Structure formats: structure tokens, C-alpha cells
Computed example of a mutant assay.
Amino acid sequence: MDLDDHLRATCARIKAACHDFGIRVTEIDPANVDVGPSVLRYKIKLAPGEEASRLRKKAEDIARQLAATSIPIIGFLPGTHYEYLDMARPDRQTVELEPVLNTEKLRDVNHLPLQIGIDPGGRTVCLDLGDDKLPHILVAGGTGSGKTIFLYSVVLSLISVHSDKSLELVIIDPKQTDFTIFGGLKHLREGEVITEADRGVEVVRQIAEHEMQERSDILQKAKCRDIKSFNASHREKPMRSLVVVIDEYADLIAVLSKKEKEEFERVISRITARGRNVGIHLILATQRPTTDIVTGNIKANMACRISFSLPSSRDSQVILDESGAERLLRHGDMLLMHEGKLTRLQGYYVDPAKIEGLLKRM
């Protein structure tokens, strides 16, 4: 069955399932389905007076009736009259990172473009870590979800457009093996990936307690309110942006006592609260987004959050403040929470075995 036939058949089956469950539907048009790399987004127009909550509560029953491989995510499509229902695409497509690297041209030295992924409508999403609305990102995802590949794409996005003269990286990898391929990058502080948890803790603490103050002193002396105004008036010798990537936050703080964890949480909060103005950005990732790891204090200044597949709706609630991540398809399927809006994306893929060759070509 080709894709068009699949869309027509599935629309008819969704409508029949809704009818069986007493949900009144007026329209599910095959021509109106968004075809994304990993999901097919069906748009359902409910009859006047029909409650959307009834449709959402029947997600598991609809999946069973359609013999679906996963439970669909159902929600309201803002700016339309439709509810959307996301189903797994039977011929799922891989979206390669390399073709989109360098497609985003730098506006200035403060521009930190991150290639994130493609939405169900086929639109590419690129975020600017240097944007005042997006200084830091909180990332969660279980084993096989695509979290680490996403972090690879973040690093590659940045170094593809920035030399070590305008960007510095600190990569902390307590698991000790995932980021060794980036060891020796000129962008890296001291030219190495930090793999010892206790050393990673100390480096982050030094950034919060000393480097932030040193950068603030430079800005005050230059009578500049932030790094952007400083770099605008010091084009010959700009202040480098510093991006700190922590791959597994839970492993990082595992070496700390309860009191030390509380103190380190305040260190993280200091960076997320004040780092933006001095050009320090944090990308914090974890496999285990439990409330004792991802606390309210950490989330407070990390409004941009990305979740890959998680084991439970409780985990999804912790990272996104709503359920949904437990229904993602793994392998790069993600939910992006940015500016209060939740967007489903398929993340880019880069083969870890090809990263070394890619780095040599940059």
C-alpha cells in the first residue's frame, strides 16, 4: 500500500473508531494530513458541542482499534478548528544532520544557531541559543531515545559556524565514553572532554563563582549592559560565548552528599539566572528526570525544555509540566517546549562513526 492509500484508509478507520466510541466527527481529510519524517498528523474536526477531552481520553482505545504500534498523541492545533492525532509513519524517514549544517548564516558573533529538527508539517526548526528568550536548554530522554545524538547535533551545529575565537565549549560526560570523539577540539576548554564527575562539578562551580564575576567586571569597566553590547563595540576582540554541555546530570551529582547537592543546585541556578548577560549558556541533559534530580529551582530559569521518549507520564510531567513524552517513538522523536508552546519534532541524525570525518571537513 502506497502512502496516499495508507492515509485514506487510516482516515476512514479513525473516523469509524470515533463513531464506535460515540465521538462525533465532521471531518478527517486525507489531503489535510501533515506528513512528517516520523509521524503522520491527522487533523480531526469535531462536531459542534463535542468535547475534545473525550477524544483525548480514548487515545489508547483508538490505538487498539487501529492495531497501532504506539498510542497516539492527541491535542489541539492552535489557530485552527482541529484536534490533531499523531500516528507513527509506517515508512519512517531518517533526517540527516550534515546537509543542514552551515545553512544558517551567522548574523553576528552572538548568534548561536542550533539545528533542532523537523516538525510534522516538514518545517525545519533552528533555535538561537544566543536569543535572550533562550539562554539555556533542559533535555531529558531515556536509553535509545536519541538524546545523545541530539547533543552531538548541538555541538556540531555550533562548531560548524563558530571558530574557537568566538566560541568556547565545556563538555562534561560522566559516562566517560559518549563524547570522546570530540576530544581535542580547539573550542574545548583545555582541549579535552571532562569525564570525571568530581572535576566536572568543580569546573561548573568555578564558572559560577569566578568566571561569571570576571566577565561582569569586564562589562562594567566597558560600561556595557551585556555581552551583545560589548561585542558590538569590540568587534576586533569580542568576548567569546561559553556553552556548557552536561550529558548526564544525575551521574554528575551522584558523587555529592545531600548537602553538597543542594549547594550545587544553587550553583546551577546562579548560572541559569545570570549567565545570559555575560554570554554563558547551559545545556543540561539527564536520563532520569525525577523531581529530586530536576528540581523546581533548576526548571525555574530553563523555560526551553526538550524531551525525548521517557518511561512514564510522571517523568514527562517533571520535564514538560504535561504528559506526552511517554508516547514518543524513540530514535529522535521529541517534544520541544519553547515560549509556552509544545512542538513535536524529529531530531536530526548523525552517525557517530562518521563524526570524526565530519570534524576534519569543518
Rank of each mutant, 00 (worst) to 15 (best):
Q317H: 15
A88D: 11
Y249E: 01
C304S: 00
P78C: 06
A67Y: 13
L328V: 05
H234R: 09
L219H: 01
I268P: 07
T143V: 14
V161N: 03
R305E: 12
L138M: 09
A140Y: 05
I306S: 07
I319N: 05
L336C: 09
P120D: 14
A68G: 06
K147C: 09
R235C: 10
D217I: 07
D292H: 11
V203C: 04
K221F: 07
K165G: 13
G49C: 07
V294N: 05
G121L: 05
F264L: 10
L185G: 14
R13V: 00
P289T: 07
D119M: 03
R199N: 01
T177K: 13
T124E: 15
L66T: 00
V100K: 06
G122L: 10
D119W: 00
L112P: 01
G22P: 08
L97S: 08
S216I: 11
V25W: 02
S309R: 13
G49M: 03
P352D: 03
L55I: 00
V35N: 11
L335C: 08
R305F: 02
P311T: 11
D251I: 08
L106V: 08
G183S: 15
P352F: 10
L167D: 02
K57C: 01
L129D: 08
P99Q: 09
G117S: 02
